[in-house]
């Protein structure tokens, strides 16, 4: 089985990894790069546990060939905290809200949620927007309630921070 040498950026670092052409990004992340935070739940795109961001967009790593990540920037849950200097506000909010029970779906949900908040750009998302953005990620433990609470909590904080900094800008002007 011949291997390809694949170059991509993972969590901000340039990596080269050898893998056969029929391997998915999920396998390469988990078993070659030891980025075990990305989970495998259903084998084929039905659960969202394997969600990562590719060039900032949430995608299913179980349905992405590793070769398709070549030259692109992949962000996994390990990278989410790094971006924020250790712990992302979403991770902190999920912890405060007990939004992770078994935690197996959580990495994928965090990556979907982060993309939503980035798109909101300081506007507070509605409950429906949160549900729509996370509707590709199944959670079997929580009944979703605490997850929604946690995401809305961060959305509110970001909206407050955005309003405050807009106020400062206005003031400075």
């Amino acid at each position: 089985m011949s291997h390809l040498l694949l170059s991509m950026t993972v969590n901000g670092e340039a990596v080269q990894v050898a893998a056969p052409a029929h391997h998915t990004l999920l396998e390469v992340l988990r078993y070659k790069l030891d980025l075990i935070g990305t989970k495998q739940g259903c084998d084929k795109g039905d659960c969202g546990a394997c969600t990562v961001q590719i060039d900032g967009v949430p995608q299913l790593s179980c349905l992405t060939l590793a070769v398709h990540a070549v030259g692109r920037a992949v962000t996994t849950v390990e990278g989410l905290g790094q971006q924020a200097g250790g712990c992302h506000p979403l991770q902190d909010a999920f912890d405060r809200w007990n939004a992770a029970q078994c935690g197996f779906c959580t990495p994928g949900i965090l990556l979907s949620a982060e993309a939503l908040l980035r798109r909101c750009a300081g506007r507070e998302p509605t409950r429906l927007q949160v549900c729509e953005a996370l509707a590709g990620n199944l959670c079997r433990c929580t009944g979703y309630t605490k997850i929604i609470d946690a995401v809305l909590d961060v959305g509110r904080q970001m909206a407050v921070a955005a309003a405050a900094s807009a106020g400062e800008v206005a003031h400075a002007e």
């Binding site: 795109g45 949430p58 995608q59 979907s112 996370l134 590709g136």
Partner: peptide, 9 residues
């Protein structure tokens, strides 16, 4: 279609 992650792909 399907789910947000699938529509992204």
């Amino acid at each position: 279609v399907a789910s947000p992650v699938i529509r992204n792909m």
